[in-house]
Structure formats: C-alpha cells, structure tokens
Simulated assay, not measured.
Amino acid sequence: MVSDISQGKKTVEKYKRFFYSLPIVGERTEQQLILLAKAGLKEEIRDGLETEEFATLEALFEDAEEVGEGLKETPPSIPGKRRRTSPDHRSSKRARRAEKKGDPEDEGYGYPGEG
C-alpha cells in the first residue's frame, strides 16, 4: 500500500507524464507550456504554489509535487461532515455548557452548601 504522502506526489507525477506526452509540448514556448500546465493542476495544488511565475516547466512540477505531498499530510475535510466550532474554537457542546454553568466551587452560582 502506498502512503498518503507519496500519493500526492504520484498524482502530480502522473499529470506531468500526461502533460509531456501532449503534442502541443513541441509547439509552444516554455512560458506558454508553464501557463497551460499550471492551469491543468488541481485547484488545491495550484493555490498552494509558492510563486506565480516559474523559470521552467520542471520547476513548476517540482513545486507542485511538494504542494501535493503537503496536502496529503493533512486529511481533506469532508463537506457536510465538518465539526461545528464555537467562536472560541471549542467543538464540544459539553465544554461550552460547562463554561456557562461555571465551577461549583465558585461563589454566586446557587449550589447547595454554598455560603
């Protein structure tokens, strides 16, 4: 089984092989190819690229591979399955409820034996 981290790199490598196999590669300038290749990357990888401009097509693919590896290190969120968090970033309702109720050892909450 291939690890998740290498899976992101493999996705970019697969796209790179596909891209280099296109007949247009011999017909365009390096900068045109860079723009075309970048446009064909997955949006999440394209958004993670360190720069907008690359000197070579190979530099673009190397950066894209690094982004792909980084994306696989953190599991993607599943839409609709997100945990709701409060403004203080607590995901647990119990934690928020306990905060509202207060500590029974604190004064002023009307707990039995207080006084």
Rank of each mutant, 00 (worst) to 15 (best):
G48I: 05
D88L: 14
L71G: 00
E73T: 04
G70D: 06
E30Y: 09
K100C: 01
E105Q: 11
F61C: 05
G80F: 08
I45A: 06
G48W: 01
E73A: 06
T29V: 03
D63L: 03
K72V: 00
E43V: 04
R90C: 04
P79A: 13
A59V: 06
H89A: 14
E66T: 03
E50V: 10
F54D: 01
D103N: 15
A55E: 00
R46Q: 10
I34A: 03
I45K: 03
T51H: 13
P76E: 03
G26F: 09
K81T: 15
K42E: 06
E62R: 08
A39R: 05
T85F: 14
T56D: 00
E30H: 08
V25I: 06
V67C: 05
L36K: 05
K93P: 10
L33G: 03
R90F: 07
G48F: 10
K101S: 08
H89V: 12
G48L: 09
K38V: 08
P76K: 05
Q31C: 05
G70S: 04
E73D: 08
P104W: 13
G40C: 04
T29F: 12
E58C: 01
G40E: 08
E52I: 11
R96N: 01
A98T: 10
E30Q: 05
E66V: 13
G68S: 02
S92D: 08
I34E: 01
R28Y: 10
V25Q: 07
Q31K: 14
T56E: 00
K93S: 12
E58Y: 12
L60D: 03
K93G: 09
E99Y: 06
E65P: 09
P87V: 15
H89C: 13
R28T: 05
T29N: 07
E105D: 03
L41T: 08
P76V: 01
R96K: 09
T74Y: 06
S86K: 11
G40Y: 01
P104H: 04
T29M: 11
E44F: 05
E65T: 05
A39Y: 14
S86D: 14
T29L: 03
T85R: 14
S86I: 06
L60N: 12
T56N: 06
T74Q: 00
K93A: 07
E66D: 10
L57G: 03
L33A: 07
A64T: 07
K81F: 15
E43P: 02
L71Y: 04
V25R: 11
V67S: 01
H89E: 13
S77N: 11
E105R: 07
H89S: 14
E66M: 11
P76I: 02
A59N: 00
L49G: 11
S92K: 13
E73I: 11
H89Q: 15
E30S: 02
D103W: 15
L57S: 00
S86N: 14
R28F: 13
K101E: 11
E69D: 03
T74D: 07
R94D: 14
S86A: 13
K93F: 14
G40S: 02
I34H: 00
A55L: 06
T51D: 13
R97D: 09
E105M: 11
E99K: 10
L71A: 02
L35E: 10
D88G: 14
I45N: 02
L57F: 04
E99C: 00
G102Y: 13
F61K: 00
